[in-house]
Amino acid sequence: MKIVVLLKQTFDTEEKVVVEGGKVKEDGAQFIINPYDEYAVEEAIRIKESGDAEVVLISYGPARAEEALRKALAMGADRAILIEDETPSADEAYVAELIARAVEKEAPDILLAGYFSVDNGAGQVALRVAERLGMNHVGAVLKLTLDGDRVRAERDAEGDIEVVETTLPVLLTAQQGLNDPRYPSLPGIMKAKKKPLDRLTPGELGVERKETTQVIEQYLPPKKEAGKIIGGTAEEAARELVRLLREEAKVV
């Protein structure tokens, strides 16, 4: 069995995001494996540990993404492919086309990815890859059971659980709760340094940069105003609340 995991290096979610000149400032920022992708990596390694599988990582991003790939290798993945681009595109259609070419060559039985990336948050790339390659797809998976080429996935359906059965080859995107990702051990990290990591350029994949969407500007959300506290008895407060909802917020 071959498992390909799509992995993106993103901002550390603990970091303070600084926007300068309509762009997120990257200087001095910490980068991590996109947390949802980390669940995908963990799941792939667990499948490998319970049977026999090769786990291949594919990432699209600048050279620094190697750190994220090495970390996933240290967790237990076997090898990695980095599609290197110092000015990575945010156009999901183009990125999906690139990644699809790389995935196609690997011909995986299972394609695993995060539900979405915590930076751009579009949740499109993995689905587009599956679409291009004609693979089945189950999104936001919380529990996964494999039996031969039969796949049973429990997915997060807006708070409820939906059970989906399908067959390999399949794309599964990981939702928070799928597992508890391990952290790399020291022997794991040392082994990871010697694991193969291939670098490819978009050109080598034969894909020309073509973007149908562009990021025009990035800005921080407006600061939250302090809340209003309504005083008085319950009856007075309720009356005042209804008045505010009607006259100020204009929602009722």
Binding site: K71, Y183, P184, S185, L186, I189, M190, K193
Partner: peptide, 13 residues
């Protein structure tokens, strides 16, 4: 490299 790795691994944990 190994020793720096120890620092990184502990920090990561």
């Amino acid at each position: 490299d190994e020793q720096r790795t120890v620092i990184d691994a502990v920090e990561e944990l």
